[in-house]
């Protein structure tokens, strides 16, 4: 499948504009026709406008499609553009090495950090190898082992989240998927080093939260963060997985909603049209946020940072206390 075929229906008008601009450009180059330059610049203005409108007006389901876009940069497509000297570490020391989640030493503009990220894979064989970014218990045990390692050398931890969820399977249940997620949440809550989490694609339920308890939590503009996949919610509450678009809207899974509900600390804007339109620019925006954010949280002393982290999650929730 060519890249053009991987575009979503609602992206087609933009593709048409781009094609038209390119045609005019080559015509102008060959003929040197003055009037074409005017038309080109008009179309370019139109294109920017169309991209801006597209990203502003997207429904929750369209953002879900962007978050899962075949051309969207994965966590490590971004990481390799941001970090230097990436060195992967493997294994949970008791069962295996989980390829759905990568843990690496990395250098962020001169500062050593421990980097975690889900890997979904792009081609079919890669996707199978990485289990579509759905980690087993050994993946989270590897994370727990290595964030403790980072803690003992006082290195910050940065996690890039992009997973449909923790894997639901026989082996995962046998090896304590629920137990290890609770353990990971607890360890992240108490980790004595600065921590940052960014949902860069799909933030799928417990599998995302297990590496998502941090001093600062951000989402890329078109990322989603959800308690259950739209399909899962639709099949339970709407009695048909095909009604996922309605479930996505009802659960309010977009970055803007997460921000307004107090669940995340901020949104990192994507390039016009979405992250897949420009990987380098997306990485640059993410990198800037990571650097400034890390600087900010590193200024706090450990006790203050831990207290603030606890308070942040402690406050999340909306309820009512009746008079009687």
């Amino acid at each position: 499948m060519s890249d053009k075929e991987k575009l979503l229906d609602f992206e087609k008008p933009i593709l048409e504009l781009e094609t038209r601009i390119q045609e005019l450009r080559s015509a102008a180059r060959e003929g040197g026709v003055e009037s074409l330059f005017k038309e080109i610049s008009e179309l370019e203005v139109k294109l920017v406008e169309a991209q801006r409108e597209l990203t502003e007006r997207l429904t929750a389901w369209q953002r879900t499609q962007l978050a899962r876009h075949a051309l969207r940069p994965g966590a490590f497509d971004l990481a390799t553009r941001i970090f230097d000297d990436i060195l992967e570490l493997h294994g949970d020391r008791s069962f295996g090495d989980d390829a759905a989640i990568n843990v690496s030493m990395a250098n962020l503009k001169g500062r050593e950090v421990l980097l975690l990220g889900h890997i979904k894979g792009r081609e079919t064989n890669e996707r199978v190898k990485h289990n579509f970014g759905m980690a087993h218990p050994e993946g989270y045990r590897k994370v727990i082992r290595l964030i403790e390692f980072a803690e003992s050398f006082k290195k910050p931890v940065i996690s890039l989240i992009d997973t449909p969820g923790a894997y639901p399977g026989i082996g995962a249940e046998e090896r304590g998927q629920a137990w290890v997620i609770a353990d990971a949440i607890e360890k992240f809550m108490k980790l004595e080093v600065p921590t940052i989490s960014v949902v860069v694609g799909e933030g799928g339920s417990g599998g995302a939260l297990a590496v998502g308890v941090a001093d600062r939590v951000y989402m890329l503009e078109n990322a989603i963060y959800s308690v259950i996949s739209p399909e899962g919610c639709a099949s339970i509450l709407f009695r048909d997985a095909i009604r996922a678009p309605e479930a996505a809207a009802a659960m309010k899974i977009t970055a803007r909603h997460a921000e307004s509900l107090g669940v995340i600390d901020g949104i990192i804007e994507e390039p016009p049209g979405g992250a897949h339109r420009d990987w380098d620019d997306t990485a640059k925006r993410l990198s800037e946020r990571l650097i400034s954010s890390l600087e900010e949280i590193s200024k706090m002393n450990t006790n203050e940072r831990l207290a603030k982290r606890y308070e942040k999650f402690r406050k999340i929730g909306i309820f009512h206390e009746a008079e009687s």
Partner: peptide, 18 residues
């Protein structure tokens, strides 16, 4: 988690574990 409260429900996991 209670799906009708969306992401707020997921975050109760962090709150209670903490």
């Amino acid at each position: 988690a209670r799906m009708q409260e969306g992401i707020l429900s997921l975050m109760q996991m962090a709150k209670t574990v903490g």
